[in-house]
Amino acid sequence: MSSSTAQAGSAEQKVAVVTGASSGIGAATARQLAAQGYHVVLGARRTDLVDELATEIGGTGRQLDVTDEASVDAFLEGLDRVHVLVNNAGGAKGLDPVAEADLDDWRWMWETNVMGTLRITKGLIPALIASGDGLIVTITSIAAMEAYDNGAGYTSAKHAQALLHRTLRFELLGKPVRLTEIAPGMVETDFSLVRFEGDKERADAVYQGLDPLSAEDVAEVIGFVASRPPHVNLDQIVLKPRDQASARRNIKTG
Protein backbone atom coordinates (compact mmCIF):
# COMPACT_ATOMS: atom_id res chain seq x y z
CA MET A 1 0.00 0.00 0.00
CA SER A 2 1.54 3.29 -1.03
CA SER A 3 -1.31 5.69 -1.74
CA SER A 4 -2.04 8.53 0.67
CA THR A 5 -5.54 7.19 1.27
CA ALA A 6 -4.48 3.65 2.15
CA GLN A 7 -5.45 2.37 5.55
CA ALA A 8 -2.53 1.96 7.92
CA GLY A 9 -2.29 -1.78 8.34
CA SER A 10 -4.72 -4.40 9.57
CA ALA A 11 -6.51 -4.13 12.90
CA GLU A 12 -3.97 -6.49 14.48
CA GLN A 13 -0.77 -5.04 13.01
CA LYS A 14 1.13 -2.41 14.96
CA VAL A 15 1.55 0.94 13.24
CA ALA A 16 4.70 3.08 13.14
CA VAL A 17 4.90 6.64 11.81
CA VAL A 18 8.26 7.91 10.55
CA THR A 19 8.78 11.54 9.49
CA GLY A 20 11.54 12.63 7.13
CA ALA A 21 11.35 9.13 5.68
CA SER A 22 12.46 9.77 2.10
CA SER A 23 16.16 9.11 2.75
CA GLY A 24 18.86 8.73 5.39
CA ILE A 25 17.91 7.79 8.95
CA GLY A 26 14.18 8.02 8.20
CA ALA A 27 14.29 5.60 5.28
CA ALA A 28 16.56 3.17 7.14
CA THR A 29 14.23 3.31 10.15
CA ALA A 30 11.18 2.60 7.99
CA ARG A 31 12.89 -0.51 6.62
CA GLN A 32 13.97 -1.60 10.11
CA LEU A 33 10.51 -1.26 11.65
CA ALA A 34 8.83 -2.94 8.68
CA ALA A 35 11.22 -5.88 9.12
CA GLN A 36 10.07 -6.05 12.75
CA GLY A 37 6.45 -6.41 11.66
CA TYR A 38 5.14 -2.84 11.82
CA HIS A 39 2.99 -1.27 9.18
CA VAL A 40 4.97 1.90 8.54
CA VAL A 41 3.40 5.20 7.53
CA LEU A 42 6.13 7.24 5.86
CA GLY A 43 6.01 11.00 5.63
CA ALA A 44 8.24 13.37 3.64
CA ARG A 45 8.02 16.22 1.17
CA ARG A 46 9.41 14.08 -1.68
CA THR A 47 6.38 11.91 -2.37
CA ASP A 48 8.01 9.97 -5.20
CA LEU A 49 10.66 8.64 -2.81
CA VAL A 50 8.29 7.78 0.05
CA ASP A 51 5.85 6.09 -2.32
CA GLU A 52 8.67 3.99 -3.77
CA LEU A 53 9.89 2.99 -0.32
CA ALA A 54 6.35 2.33 0.90
CA THR A 55 5.85 -0.07 -1.99
CA GLU A 56 9.14 -1.78 -1.16
CA ILE A 57 8.27 -2.39 2.50
CA GLY A 58 4.49 -2.76 2.25
CA GLY A 59 3.80 0.50 4.03
CA THR A 60 1.89 3.70 3.34
CA GLY A 61 3.49 6.78 1.82
CA ARG A 62 2.04 10.22 2.50
CA GLN A 63 3.18 13.72 1.62
CA LEU A 64 4.36 15.63 4.68
CA ASP A 65 5.88 19.04 5.22
CA VAL A 66 6.21 19.40 8.99
CA THR A 67 6.48 23.20 8.65
CA ASP A 68 3.01 23.39 7.06
CA GLU A 69 0.00 22.91 9.35
CA ALA A 70 -2.33 21.95 6.50
CA SER A 71 0.15 19.31 5.33
CA VAL A 72 0.45 17.94 8.87
CA ASP A 73 -3.34 17.82 9.30
CA ALA A 74 -3.74 15.91 6.02
CA PHE A 75 -0.94 13.51 6.98
CA LEU A 76 -2.53 12.74 10.36
CA GLU A 77 -5.99 12.08 8.96
CA GLY A 78 -7.18 8.59 9.85
CA LEU A 79 -4.22 7.82 12.11
CA ASP A 80 -6.21 7.03 15.23
CA ARG A 81 -4.12 4.05 16.37
CA VAL A 82 -0.33 4.48 16.36
CA HIS A 83 2.19 2.47 18.37
CA VAL A 84 5.46 4.15 17.39
CA LEU A 85 6.23 7.70 16.30
CA VAL A 86 9.73 8.49 15.08
CA ASN A 87 10.30 12.24 14.90
CA ASN A 88 13.12 12.27 12.38
CA ALA A 89 12.33 15.26 10.16
CA GLY A 90 14.85 18.01 10.75
CA GLY A 91 18.09 19.45 9.51
CA ALA A 92 20.61 22.26 9.50
CA LYS A 93 21.31 25.20 7.22
CA GLY A 94 24.56 27.09 7.13
CA LEU A 95 27.49 27.53 9.47
CA ASP A 96 27.36 31.25 10.08
CA PRO A 97 28.59 32.91 13.27
CA VAL A 98 25.92 34.69 15.29
CA ALA A 99 27.17 38.09 14.12
CA GLU A 100 26.41 37.08 10.53
CA ALA A 101 23.35 34.92 11.16
CA ASP A 102 20.98 34.35 8.25
CA LEU A 103 17.56 34.81 9.86
CA ASP A 104 15.79 32.80 7.17
CA ASP A 105 18.07 29.84 7.89
CA TRP A 106 17.33 30.16 11.60
CA ARG A 107 13.57 30.28 10.96
CA TRP A 108 13.77 27.17 8.78
CA MET A 109 15.76 25.24 11.42
CA TRP A 110 13.37 26.19 14.21
CA GLU A 111 10.27 25.51 12.11
CA THR A 112 11.56 22.13 10.97
CA ASN A 113 13.24 20.78 14.10
CA VAL A 114 11.11 22.33 16.84
CA MET A 115 7.70 23.33 15.54
CA GLY A 116 7.60 20.38 13.16
CA THR A 117 8.24 17.94 15.99
CA LEU A 118 5.61 19.73 18.07
CA ARG A 119 2.94 19.60 15.35
CA ILE A 120 3.35 15.89 14.67
CA THR A 121 3.74 14.84 18.30
CA LYS A 122 0.80 16.92 19.54
CA GLY A 123 -1.37 15.51 16.77
CA LEU A 124 -0.51 11.87 17.51
CA ILE A 125 -0.53 11.82 21.33
CA PRO A 126 -4.19 10.63 21.46
CA ALA A 127 -3.45 7.82 18.96
CA LEU A 128 -0.33 6.77 20.87
CA ILE A 129 -2.25 6.62 24.14
CA ALA A 130 -5.10 4.75 22.44
CA SER A 131 -2.67 2.04 21.29
CA GLY A 132 -2.14 0.98 24.90
CA ASP A 133 1.63 0.81 24.36
CA GLY A 134 2.90 3.89 22.54
CA LEU A 135 6.47 4.97 21.91
CA ILE A 136 7.78 8.37 20.85
CA VAL A 137 11.33 8.39 19.51
CA THR A 138 12.76 11.83 18.81
CA ILE A 139 15.99 12.09 16.85
CA THR A 140 17.87 15.02 18.31
CA SER A 141 21.67 15.25 18.10
CA ILE A 142 24.75 15.70 20.21
CA ALA A 143 24.09 19.30 19.14
CA ALA A 144 21.23 19.14 21.67
CA MET A 145 23.87 18.81 24.41
CA GLU A 146 26.82 20.88 23.19
CA ALA A 147 27.53 24.19 21.53
CA TYR A 148 30.09 24.60 18.77
CA ASP A 149 31.47 27.49 16.77
CA ASN A 150 29.18 28.78 14.01
CA GLY A 151 26.45 26.32 14.94
CA ALA A 152 24.15 28.43 17.12
CA GLY A 153 21.16 28.19 14.78
CA TYR A 154 21.20 24.41 14.70
CA THR A 155 22.32 23.79 18.28
CA SER A 156 19.69 26.14 19.68
CA ALA A 157 16.97 24.45 17.65
CA LYS A 158 18.13 20.98 18.71
CA HIS A 159 18.32 22.03 22.36
CA ALA A 160 14.72 23.28 22.10
CA GLN A 161 13.55 20.10 20.35
CA ALA A 162 15.21 17.99 23.04
CA LEU A 163 13.60 19.95 25.86
CA LEU A 164 10.21 19.61 24.19
CA HIS A 165 10.71 15.84 24.21
CA ARG A 166 12.14 15.69 27.74
CA THR A 167 9.27 17.79 29.11
CA LEU A 168 6.77 15.45 27.49
CA ARG A 169 8.40 12.58 29.39
CA PHE A 170 7.10 14.19 32.59
CA GLU A 171 3.73 15.19 31.16
CA LEU A 172 2.91 11.68 29.93
CA LEU A 173 4.01 9.92 33.10
CA GLY A 174 1.29 7.45 34.02
CA LYS A 175 0.08 7.15 30.41
CA PRO A 176 0.90 4.05 28.30
CA VAL A 177 3.52 5.92 26.27
CA ARG A 178 7.30 5.61 26.43
CA LEU A 179 9.67 8.32 25.23
CA THR A 180 13.20 7.87 23.93
CA GLU A 181 15.56 10.59 22.77
CA ILE A 182 18.26 9.42 20.39
CA ALA A 183 21.17 11.82 19.99
CA PRO A 184 23.55 10.82 17.19
CA GLY A 185 26.89 12.31 16.39
CA MET A 186 28.26 12.22 12.84
CA VAL A 187 26.03 10.23 10.50
CA GLU A 188 26.82 10.18 6.80
CA THR A 189 23.51 11.08 5.12
CA ASP A 190 22.24 14.07 3.13
CA PHE A 191 22.52 16.17 6.31
CA SER A 192 25.65 18.08 5.26
CA LEU A 193 24.41 18.35 1.67
CA VAL A 194 21.34 20.22 2.96
CA ARG A 195 23.41 22.32 5.35
CA PHE A 196 25.68 23.44 2.51
CA GLU A 197 22.86 23.97 -0.01
CA GLY A 198 23.82 21.12 -2.32
CA ASP A 199 27.58 21.71 -2.30
CA LYS A 200 28.60 18.05 -2.55
CA GLU A 201 32.33 18.68 -2.36
CA ARG A 202 31.97 20.62 0.87
CA ALA A 203 29.52 18.07 2.28
CA ASP A 204 31.78 15.12 1.44
CA ALA A 205 34.74 16.84 3.11
CA VAL A 206 32.95 16.69 6.47
CA TYR A 207 33.34 12.91 6.57
CA GLN A 208 36.68 12.48 4.81
CA GLY A 209 39.40 10.94 6.96
CA LEU A 210 37.06 9.35 9.49
CA ASP A 211 34.52 6.56 9.70
CA PRO A 212 31.09 8.07 10.54
CA LEU A 213 27.91 6.30 11.58
CA SER A 214 25.54 5.13 8.87
CA ALA A 215 21.79 5.65 8.76
CA GLU A 216 21.42 1.92 9.32
CA ASP A 217 23.44 2.14 12.55
CA VAL A 218 20.92 4.59 13.98
CA ALA A 219 17.95 2.63 12.63
CA GLU A 220 19.13 -0.53 14.39
CA VAL A 221 19.13 1.35 17.70
CA ILE A 222 15.60 2.60 17.03
CA GLY A 223 14.53 -0.94 16.27
CA PHE A 224 16.02 -2.12 19.55
CA VAL A 225 14.15 0.60 21.46
CA ALA A 226 10.88 -0.39 19.77
CA SER A 227 11.41 -4.04 20.70
CA ARG A 228 11.65 -3.42 24.46
CA PRO A 229 8.74 -4.54 26.67
CA PRO A 230 6.21 -1.87 27.73
CA HIS A 231 7.68 -1.33 31.21
CA VAL A 232 11.19 -0.54 29.89
CA ASN A 233 11.83 3.10 28.95
CA LEU A 234 15.19 3.94 27.38
CA ASP A 235 15.13 7.65 28.16
CA GLN A 236 18.17 8.85 26.23
CA ILE A 237 20.70 7.20 23.95
CA VAL A 238 23.81 8.97 22.68
CA LEU A 239 25.71 7.30 19.86
CA LYS A 240 28.81 8.53 18.09
CA PRO A 241 31.33 6.97 15.76
CA ARG A 242 34.52 5.77 17.41
CA ASP A 243 36.34 8.54 15.54
CA GLN A 244 34.32 11.29 17.26
CA ALA A 245 34.54 12.28 20.92
CA SER A 246 32.29 15.36 20.87
CA ALA A 247 30.64 17.83 18.52
CA ARG A 248 33.90 19.76 18.40
CA ARG A 249 36.45 17.01 18.59
CA ASN A 250 37.15 14.09 16.27
CA ILE A 251 40.24 12.42 14.87
CA LYS A 252 40.62 15.21 12.31
CA THR A 253 40.28 18.13 14.73
CA GLY A 254 42.41 16.47 17.42
Rank of each mutant, 00 (worst) to 15 (best):
S227T: 10
H165T: 15
G132Y: 05
D105A: 11
L76G: 05
N88K: 05
G90A: 07
G185H: 09
N113C: 07
V177W: 06
A70K: 13
P126L: 06
T189A: 12
H39K: 11
L53C: 07
R249E: 12
L33Q: 04
G37T: 10
L172Q: 07
S156T: 15
A54V: 06
D80L: 01
G185P: 10
R166N: 13
V86K: 02
V18S: 04
I125L: 15
T167P: 02
D204G: 07
G91Q: 06
V17W: 03
I222V: 15
D48M: 08
V225R: 09
D211F: 05
R242A: 13
A8K: 09
L118G: 00
P241F: 04
G90V: 01
I182R: 05
A35P: 02
R46N: 14
T60C: 10
I222Q: 02
Q244P: 03
A152F: 08
D211G: 00
P97W: 11
I57L: 12
A130D: 12
I222T: 06
F170I: 07
E77T: 14
R249C: 06
T121S: 14
L172Y: 04
G94P: 07
A205Q: 14
E100D: 15
S246G: 11
M145L: 15
V114N: 02
E12K: 12
V41N: 04
Q161W: 04
A203G: 08
G223P: 09
V18I: 13
S141N: 10
A44M: 06
G59Q: 10
P126H: 04
S141K: 05
D104M: 00
T167Q: 12
A144K: 02
S22T: 00
A160H: 08
Q244H: 02
A74E: 14
G58N: 11
I136K: 08
H159A: 11
L33F: 05
A162Q: 10
S22C: 01
D190Q: 14
D149V: 12
K158M: 12
P241S: 06
I251Y: 01
R166Q: 14
A160G: 11
R62I: 04
S23L: 00
G151Q: 03
S214L: 10
A143C: 12
S227Q: 14
R169T: 13
Q244W: 03
Q161I: 03
A6L: 06
A21W: 01
A215H: 07
T140K: 01
Y148M: 12
L172H: 05
I222P: 02
K252T: 12
I182D: 02
H159Y: 15
D65C: 09
A21L: 03
G198S: 11
T67I: 01
V187T: 14
L193N: 03
G59H: 08
A183I: 01
D51F: 02
E100K: 14
I25F: 00
L103G: 00
A27L: 09
N150Y: 10
G198W: 03
T5W: 04
V50M: 09
R31A: 03
F170P: 00
E220D: 14
I182W: 03
E181G: 14
E52G: 15
G174I: 11
P212I: 06
G209H: 08
V98Y: 12
M115V: 11
T121D: 07
